[in-house]
Amino acid sequence: MLEEVAVTVDGTPVALEAELTDSLLRALRDAGRTQVTGGCEQGECGSCSVQLDGVLVASCLVPAVVCSGAEVRTAPGLLGDDLAEAFARRGAVQCGFCTPGIVVAAESVLARAKDEGHALTPPEVREALAGNLCRCTGYEGIVAAVVEVSERRASVVPGSGA
């Protein structure tokens, strides 16, 4: 039995179709939202990370049918130009399978740090991203990029136009 689940994905209304047992990950991918990748489907690898109503979740662990009316944000909806530039320059991407999930997790912790008014330290970034496995890079470029962007965003005074 397929149920229709209306959500928005990065601001665009999307009608998901899901069985009761389908995860949000599966429903998003079945609806062509393949920017969300699935590496383990048991909440361990973090590839499928999305923001669900502003909360970072592993979409493989969320039943799709409970998401009716939810706002889903994925990598293309969250990725800042500064983070994209830093990821590319620092070598944060090799095969890229984990990347959209890491973008979501990184933008989530960056937003939290900005709200709290501080820049992230490398250990904080490592802790925040410990739920996102990457097999290619050894994480060095990823962590460096997130720290760098956090420092830059923290130094921007709100309203200064900088």
Binding site: T34, Q35, V36, T37, T74, A75, P76, L79, A84, F87, A88, V93, C95, G96, F97, T99, P100, V103
Partner: peptide, 14 residues
């Protein structure tokens, strides 16, 4: 790397 922008926004086709 030319493959990085599509990998960042998830449009790269695995």
């Amino acid at each position: 790397r030319p493959d990085v922008p599509p990998k960042l926004d998830g449009s790269f086709e695995f």
